[in-house]
Design a protein around this nucleic acid. Structure first.
Lengths: 246, 246
DNA sequence: CGACTTGTTGACGCCTTTCAACGTTGGTGG
DNA sequence: CCACCAACGTTGAAAGGCGTCAACAAGTCG
């Protein structure tokens, strides 16, 4: 239900005349992805194992508990990574943006579900194939490990946020960290795009949709932000930093 | 203020007649630590770089933000890993038990502070030294990476707990996961030792000391557990599992 | 034995949730 | 073109779970 095999290979062929969309050498996210540590000959080796895979809004890339047959590089669009409690309560563990690698722990089973927040393009590798390449290239493993370490500190940030911050602090912190993340992938702007819905934000911050909405309008009325369709303009980042108590 | 260098070397000498406390080959936690992937000759190589380091209750092994000059294997005792907010609010990110490796991300700075909950014995390596060994032994790096992946799933468990569970669920989940952790290191018992204080548990679960205390006495009065000095006896694990909603 | 630290218990208050109504947006078909 | 509908978001009122404050108990160490 997830993996639409075949379409990738086909597109890889029909797009022969339009290289900029295809090869790793021209990949939009190469320089910010794990691939950035690979030399050109290594890239070609990896490219031979890759397939492109596109998802529509709402489609799942993989599900929590499922055997991890593939790992992915996000090329375009964003996904939400979630865990579910048996009774339906949900926690969003994070959002994957272009350049992010899904499955970097190389574990046998996915620990979260990944769902597209909008149209998404990914670069897919068989997990075994990818693991074989990693085993042969220690510097790639080192790069994965470094990313894993970074993910771990992000997870710690989030634990601190979930356990010890108030609703207002949570929302302010979220907006700032999202801005910083977009900045790192190139997009620097005072207007932060919010590809996820209120419920997703709430499940990420350990709040309800209503509380998130209230905090956003409170920040809006205080002229710290301006709510715009599909995003938020940060009018007073300094004030947000103070609210986030960093 | 943390590292009491020298004491290790001395004890390493005086204990010559009592090898069981010294060499890696006789290390109590070898088989459950990262060292378990090393062959004997490799172990000796690592041993040459190691020092033993003991801490008393309350002593810090390292502090958040500090340059990571060393990495550690916990041999005996337990530590709490914490982060602090500028205003003093604290989040305990986890507890390190014998066999755990501190600094497995090999990052330049410590992302948490580590403080001894009681008498602690550690095996210390210079970070650069250790990184050099890792660079030369891909299977050791792979083992570290695997552990990092496991830590990541633990962090996700904790985020779900912090964001979406009630106080009672949090405490029940905590007791069960602590029992399971002790079980994995060998100690199987219905009585779970609690090396940390109520405040530490609270800061781990995103609660207050008072709420933790109330939930424990509630579980005690419901005969799900029995509070004993320094620990808890799990009278009705099945009930706890139900409360933890797993 | 007294001072101190740690843990327990109670009363009260507040922040966030819950429940519910209403507004807004975008897609669809008449 | 616009009515219609469903999904999403906003706002209000009320309830409740957990935090705060404070007193007290229990264990520890000098």
């Amino acid at each position: 239900m997830l993996v639409d095999t075949g379409s990738c290979e086909r597109s890889a062929h029909v797009c022969h005349h339009k290289r900029s969309e295809d090869g790793c050498a021209d990949c939009k996210v190469r320089l910010i992805s794990v691939c950035s540590v690979l030399a050109l000959p290594e890239l070609e080796e990896l490219e031979a194992l890759s397939q492109h895979l596109a998802l529509d809004k709402g489609q799942a890339l993989f599900a929590q508990g499922q055997a991890a047959t593939s790992v992915f590089n996000v090329i375009e669009g964003s996904l939400r990574l979630t865990r579910l409690l048996p009774d339906g309560r949900r926690q969003v563990m994070g959002f994957a943006l272009p350049g992010d690698f899904l499955g970097l722990a190389l574990q046998e089973r996915h620990s979260v579900s990944a769902e597209a927040l909008g149209p998404v393009k990914t670069c897919r590798f068989g997990r075994q194939d990818f693991a074989a390449v990693v085993a042969a290239k220690p510097h790639l493993l080192a790069s994965l490990h470094e990313r894993a370490g970074y993910e771990l500190t992000l997870a710690q940030d989030q634990m601190l946020l979930l356990g010890r911050r108030t609703a207002e602090e949570k929302v302010a912190t979220f907006l700032l960290s999202l801005r910083d993340r977009f900045a790192r992938t190139g997009h620097t702007s005072v207007t932060v795009e919010l590809p996820m819905g209120r419920q997703d934000m709430a499940d990420y911050l350990g709040l309800t949709m209503e509380t998130v909405s209230r905090m956003l309008t409170r920040l809006d009325r205080a002229h710290a932000i301006l709510l715009v369709p599909g995003g938020v303009r940060l009018l007073d980042p300094a004030r947000l930093e103070r609210l986030a108590s960093n």
